[in-house]
Amino acid sequence: MIKIAMIEDDLELAEVLIEYLKQFNIEVVNFEEPFLALSSLSLQKFDLIILDLTLPGMDGLDVCKELVKLDVPIIISSARSDITDKVTALKLGADDYLPKPYDPRELEVRITTILRRFNKSLDKTVEETKEKIFVLNEEKREILKNDKYLRLTAAEFEILSLFIKREGFVVSREDIFENSDVLNSDYENSGSLAVIINRIRHKIEDNQKEPKYLHTIRGMGYKFIQ
């Protein structure tokens, strides 16, 4: 599991990000107070740090100066619009700067990209993934089952990708449409989603009538297990 430290005094935002990233096998520990964060980070090992710049008691750029000494990738998450802050943070050694407000999906992508570059926890995750039946490669837009490529339409790929990333969690119809760039309200109203789900089952299941991987959770949505 990827372990991330977040220094964020907006507890409502922190809670949203913690819950969202959990589904991607990312554990987030939030520190509301920067001095406590610096003390804890000197004792605990994390794969990445998400740092807000507007913090109580200490300026975020000063915190950044201390964090770069730990040799851990840093993503700045800030509502400050001054380009000087962005330039200063990057010059200090931060790896990315994400202005607020932002979509949590973008944060997850940036975390994955940075960790791939650092070859740290993501390598462990990839090793674990190799042992699984289904392997998702988002960059190549490919999904493999037992090392064989699945021939999928754009909609099928999007939905199955979401299921794989949220393995073990219930995914509702609303989740599918909110996280899709292909599906629109026409699909939602026409019932075409059920048709696409059936097509996916046809391509991944040995027996559609007794699905092993993609299960319907009555009244809630779908759950993918492998």
Rank of each mutant, 00 (worst) to 15 (best):
K45A: 14
I50P: 00
L51E: 09
D52G: 07
L55M: 07
G57Q: 13
M58Y: 08
V63Q: 06
C64L: 14
K69G: 09
L70C: 00
L70E: 02
I74K: 10
I76W: 00
S78A: 15
A79N: 04
D82E: 09
I83E: 08
T84G: 07
K86Q: 12
K86F: 01
K86G: 01
V87G: 07
V87Q: 11
A89D: 15
K91R: 15
K91N: 12
L92N: 04
G93P: 04
D95C: 14
L98Q: 12
L98G: 15
P99T: 09
K100N: 11
P101N: 01
P101Q: 01
Y102I: 13
D103Y: 09
P104A: 03
R110T: 10
R110P: 05
R110Y: 13
R116W: 03
R117W: 04
K120R: 12
S121R: 00
S121L: 00
D123L: 04
V135A: 00
L136E: 00
E138C: 05
R141A: 05
R141P: 03
E142V: 15
E142R: 12
L144G: 00
K145V: 11
K148Q: 10
Y149F: 09
Y149T: 02
A154P: 01
E158T: 04
L162K: 05
K165S: 01
